[in-house]
Nucleic acid binder design. Sequence first.
DNA 1: TTGTAAGCGTTATCAT
DNA 2: ATGATAACGCTTACAA
Lengths: 339, 339
Amino acid sequence: MPTLSDVAQRAGVTTATVSNVIRGKGSVGPATAERVRAIIADIGYRPNLTARALAEGRAPTLALLVSSIANPFYPEFARAAEQAARREGHFLLVCHTETDADIGLAYLDRVSSGLSEGVLAMAGNLRPQDLVAVADRGVPVVLVMWEQTREALPMHSLTVDFHTAGRLAAEHLLALGHRSIGLVSAKTAEGCLVHVQRHCGFLATLAEAGVSLPDTSIEYDRDTIGGGFRAALDLLSRANGLTAVFATNDLLAIGAMQAAAALGRRVPQDLSVMGVTDIELAAQMRPALTTVAIGTVAVAESSIRLLLDKIRLGSVHNEQYSTPPPVLIRRGSTAPPPR
Amino acid sequence: MPTLSDVAQRAGVTTATVSNVIRGKGSVGPATAERVRAIIADIGYRPNLTARALAEGRAPTLALLVSSIANPFYPEFARAAEQAARREGHFLLVCHTETDADIGLAYLDRVSSGLSEGVLAMAGNLRPQDLVAVADRGVPVVLVMWEQTREALPMHSLTVDFHTAGRLAAEHLLALGHRSIGLVSAKTAEGCLVHVQRHCGFLATLAEAGVSLPDTSIEYDRDTIGGGFRAALDLLSRANGLTAVFATNDLLAIGAMQAAAALGRRVPQDLSVMGVTDIELAAQMRPALTTVAIGTVAVAESSIRLLLDKIRLGSVHNEQYSTPPPVLIRRGSTAPPPR
DNA sequence: TTGTAAGCGTTATCAT
DNA sequence: ATGATAACGCTTACAA
C-alpha cells in the first residue's frame, strides 16, 4: 500500500504538503494541489487511519458494549446509535459481552486503550469497579439504560423512566376494568430482578388503586419469548381467574400471548396481554402487542450525543440529554375483561 | 494516560524491556520483570492498541459489513462471527451499510485502510467494483452468502447451497401431499429477485414432480414480516385453493402465518406454511415454523476461519471452508392438506 | 539480560 | 506556499 511519502516523492513535495491537500488545511498552491490529487488517484493512495489516529491522539470510533444481541432490542438500539455516530463521522464498534463480566472487562480494556475514543456501556453485566477504573483512566464513559438499582456510579448516564412505564401499563389495564392481573417478570440466574423499576411502578400503581397482587400471580423467567411462554403458562394454568397479564418486556409478552393461544384463550377477548419497550416485533404480532414505548431511537441518539459532547467538551451537563417520557401504545392485545 | 516509557522510567529500564515483560517475549530477569509488573499495576498502565497496531502493521480487528440489521438473521450471524473472532483474539467491527452502496463504500474505504485487518462482506448492496478495488489494494476480503447471481468476483467466498434449500422445501411439501402451493418471495425496489436460488430450486423441484405454479400463485414483497403478511394475504384472498405456502425466508413465512390467521385459516390444519433459514424466532412461533436450516452459526465460523487464514497464510484453498448442506427442520406449521 | 535506535504512517509546528 | 522535523506510543532487530 502506498504511503504519504510515496505520494510526496512522486509529486516532488513533502509529506506536509500532501497531508495539507488531503485535509484541505494549511495553504497549498492550486497547481501543486492538483498535481498531488492526480497522483493520489493514480496510485490509489488511501490514508492509513491507524497512523492518523496515533498522530491525532484519537480514533474515529466509539464503542458500544451490549450484553446479549439475542434480544432484538439491542440491534434496534445499536442501529440507531450507529446511524447517529455515523452522522458525526464516527464508527461504532459493537462489542457483545454475552453474560460474562470478564469478557466485558476484556473488551473494556482493549477498547479503552486506543481502539476507541469513548465507551457507551449498556451491558448490565459490567462490573462497576471495572467501569470506574476505565473512567479514571480518562476514558469518556457513558452509561445507558441501567435499570438495576445499584450504587450511583461517578459517571454520566442516560436513564429511562421505567417506573413511569410500569405505571402507565397499570393505569391502562385498570382503566379497561381489569382487577385480576398477572405479572410476568425477569430474574437473572442469581435471582436478582432485571426489570425492577417497571415491576415496582406497576405494583405501586395497582396498590394505589386498591388492587393487590398475590405472589401466585407473579411469575419469573428468563427475558426471552420462551421464558414468557413458560411463565405465563404456569400463571394461567393456576385457574386464578386472571383477565390480564402484564409482562415487563415485549419478548416476555409475546411468549405470554403464545401461552394464551396454547391454552385456548383468545387475546384480547379472553385475556389482555401487554409489554414494555415497543420493539419492532411488537407491532408485527397478530394481534399487535399493546405496549409502553420507551423511545429507543431517541435514547440511542441522545446517548451518542452525550458521549460525543463529553469527548469534545470534557465535562458536560447531564440535564440537556434527557430521555423521552414513556408512552402507552394501544394496540390489539388489550381489551376490557370478558363478561 | 501513562505510556510505556513512563513505566520504563519508573522501573529504571528501557521501553524494550518493559515491552518484553508485557508480551512475555525476549528474556528478562525475574527480578526486573516483577518490578516492572508492579509498576504497571501501580500506575495503571495499559498498552495503547493504536500504537501497537501501527508498529505491528496490523490491527486486531476484523470488519463485518452487513446491510440491514433489521433482519434478525444478521444479529444471529454477527453474534456467531464475533464469538469465533474473539476466540482468535480479534475484535469484530460490525458496520451497517443500510441499503446505500455509498455508505458501504465509505465503510469499506475506512475499514480497509488500517482500521481492520480484513473484511467480511455480507452486504448484498456493495458494488462489485468497490470490493475489487479494496481487494486489489491488498486487503483480505471474503464474501459470505452472496446469493444473487452476479459476475464471479475474483476473491474468496463462502456460499450456501440455497438451491438445495428450495428443493428440500418442495420435496417436503410434495411428500405431505400438497399440489396447490403458493410462493412468497422477495424482490428489491429495482425488481431484482433477492432469493433467486431458493426460488428456482423450489420451482424446479415442483416442475420435476409435474406440479406447476401459475403466476397468480407467486407474490413478491419486501423481506420482512409485514411483507410476508401482505404478500400472503393477496395470495390467499385469490381463492385459488392453495393448501400450502412456501416463503423464501422465515420472516416472510411468519408474516404468511399471520395472514392465514387474519383470514381465519388455521395453520397447519387448513394451510401449511414453511420458510428458509431457521432464525431463532422460527422455533418460538406458535405453531413453530417448519423451515430449512442453512446452518447460520457454522457458516459464520467458517467465514471467520477463511478470512483469518487468508490473512495469515496469504492465499488459501477455498475447498476446506465448506458450508453445511441445508437441512429440513420439521415443526408444527406443516401438515398434509385438508380432506 | 538489558540497552540502543530505527521504524510504522500520520499530524503539526516551525522555519524558510 | 512549501520544507524540515519532531512528535504519537509501540515493536523489534541488533548491539552491548
